[in-house]
Design a protein around this nucleic acid. Structure first.
Lengths: 265, 265
DNA sequence: CGTGCACTTGATAGAACTCAAGACAGGTGG
DNA sequence: CCACCTGTCTTGAGTTCTATCAAGTGCACG
């Protein structure tokens, strides 16, 4: 909850994450990029397990996740939990086009996290869209791809086997992290307990554990110590039936957004 | 595909469905109600299995489903299908706040259906929101509850047993149909094959069949001949952990929207 | 009267869950 | 510095749930 300098030494270019991510969706004017960078001026550090929004609460203003991971989730009354999606560094959450909007599920940090107020982005897009065409397009495209990830998640848990689910999930997270430069070609941070992954993929902890071991034995993925190493991406894609989201595919492949790994994250 | 008179004898008050549904979200001015009724002026009849939107296609203009059922779905490359949600009579689909939006999955009719162009609604809400405050609110709330249904669906397939899933699913459909007056207290039309329900709930056809039988034997639900009869709603709710969406709960319970069964549907 | 589609049933295999216990941290306090 | 937690991960055994295969019924339709 304490104030920190805008630049967190642990993540030297937190402010760049959202710039990179939004750049894949639209060409941003200098003032738009500037606005995005300024979003990280009000960092606030939160412990793991902090509730960002409770189900049914009003969405006051959008926020930007600068560092750490969070998720959106819901509990059944007997304690079973379903995680809907993950909020990664550089993601905006709580940005809703409807005024008076209410959260349909709760959002919670999964690791220590740094967030900041992104009201300026909401303001720009909702009330002056014509002055910020690039930002507006990027914001809408971003929301759209997020919705696409939600559908991916549904296909995983509804129609894929445990083995396929895990493969698909890791590829998706890998892709999302690469876009913002937090993952390399075959490595990514994965600071989630097996319980969390299991609750996202609709599996029991034990079964997830065994599935991960199987993937390791098959020489596909190695998940260890909060990171994952992809040992055979193309075979993983075959198994998981994974496809890169089209909205951003072209730009990425053309190198429109240059991917580079952040120094220490 | 042929033109029909605006009032389909089979559904004498198709135009009222969306009025009833939107009325639960906001108080509508007479001209707003009028606009909604006029949406059904351009009916178009489609056969079952017609693709309304293909994945990746641009969303041209919103459409209103006047009669029949449709769904949004996606296939895996080996033919497995996941149905995300159902589009019921009185529902609008393809209404997207982002220009240039692209469909994230395909939408297909499941029965014979009648649709009509709802561009006027999109126009009203997107370009003259201040002139149509009730409509705007209702449209946004409607989109919001639909998103809530998507999350319900995810909890079902991710964390509930087959038995619970079916119970929850039927309660949800029942609730949605009641809002527009197409279901009575313990009866609803359910013009879906078991294959379709199975693909929505992430189950095999055979297992769905047996689960339905179990629910029947337990005196909870009877699904037969394209309809379902709820034999014990309160126990069903316990089993399924079903809750009425809050956005509309208060109005419904106050009788704000009077529910009555359409004559022949 | 066949034909096709949806539904049903039985038998069997496989996937995933639960229970229970042990191993292996990382952190704390003595 | 070490013993002791606690939380996470791992493993084994057994059970339950769900899928698959295969065959049959029933009904609507041409």
């Amino acid at each position: 909850m304490s104030r920190l300098p805008a630049i967190d030494p642990e993540y030297p270019d937190q402010a760049e994450l959202i710039v990179r991510r939004f750049s894949q969706f639209a060409d941003l004017a200098p003032d738009e990029t500037e606005l995005l960078r300024n979003l990280s001026e009000t960092p606030e550090r939160l412990a793991a397990g902090t509730e960002l929004i409770g189900q049914g609460e009003r969405l006051e203003h959008p926020r930007l996740l600068l560092a750490g991971w969070a998720c959106r989730q819901r509990y059944l009354s007997d304690g079973r939990r379903q995680i809907f999606d993950f909020i990664l560094p550089g993601d905006v959450y709580g940005l809703c086009l409807r005024p008076q909007a209410v959260a349909l599920c709760s959002a919670v940090t999964l690791t220590r996290a740094t967030i900041s107020n992104a009201a300026a982005l909401g303001e720009a897009v909702l009330t002056h869209p014509d002055s910020y065409p690039g930002l507006t397009t990027a914001t809408l495209m971003s929301a759209s791809t997020d919705e696409g990830y939600l559908l991916n998640q549904m296909v995983r848990i509804g129609r894929q086997t445990a083995y396929e689910r895990v493969a698909h999930f890791i590829l998706e997270i890998h892709y999302r992290l690469r876009v913002v430069g937090l993952a390399s070609e075959n490595w990514l941070p994965l600071p989630l307990t097996q319980e969390i992954i299991a609750d996202a993929l609709g599996l029991s902890i034990v079964h997830l554990n065994r599935t991960l071991q199987q993937l390791r034995r098959d020489g596909l993925v190695e998940v260890k110590g909060g990171t994952a190493r992809l040992l055979d991406v193309s075979q993983l894609r075959n198994i998981a039936d994974f496809h890169v989201p089209h909205v951003s595919a072209r730009r990425l492949e053309n190198g429109g957004a240059r991917i580079h790994l952040a120094a220490s994250a």
